[in-house]
Amino acid sequence: MNASSQLPASGYCRNGIVGVYWLFSTAMEPVIVVHGGAWAIPDSLTEASIAGVKAAAQKGLSVLKSGLSALDAVEVAVRSLEDDPAFDAGYGAVLNMDGEVELDAIIMDGKTLAAGAVSSVRNITHPVTLARAVMEKTDHIMLTDRGASRFADTVGITPVPINTLVTENERREWEHYKKYAVGVKELFNSQWGHDTVGAVALDCYGNLACATSTGGIQNKMVGRVGDTPIIGSGGYADNQNGAVSCTGHGESIMKVTLARLILFHMEQGNVSREATDASLAYMGERVQGGGGAIVITPSGDWAARFTTKRMPWAVARGESLFYGLNPGDMFEEQLPK
Rank of each mutant, 00 (worst) to 15 (best):
T138S: 08
L208S: 07
I157S: 06
E319H: 14
L103N: 06
I107D: 04
T228D: 00
D72F: 05
I230V: 15
A133R: 12
I107S: 03
V20Y: 03
M330F: 13
L95P: 09
V197R: 08
E251R: 00
A281Q: 12
F322Y: 15
S190P: 07
V166Y: 04
G292Q: 04
A243K: 02
Q6S: 15
S5M: 13
T154F: 01
D145Y: 11
G328M: 06
Y236S: 06
V76A: 15
I124H: 07
V76K: 13
V256G: 02
A93D: 03
S299T: 14
S320E: 15
P312Y: 11
G250V: 05
V118G: 05
V33W: 08
P85L: 08
K337S: 15
P161F: 07
R146Y: 13
A181H: 07
A117E: 00
F87A: 07
Q268I: 00
H126W: 10
V166R: 13
M142Y: 05
A86M: 07
Q218F: 00
R224Q: 09
K54G: 02
L113H: 10
G110S: 03
E173I: 09
A115V: 11
K185L: 02
R14I: 09
I157Y: 08
D83Y: 09
D145R: 14
T138M: 08
L71P: 00
V155L: 09
P229W: 01
F331R: 11
L187E: 03
G216D: 02
G183S: 14
A48M: 10
R305H: 11
K179W: 01
W39Y: 14
V271D: 15
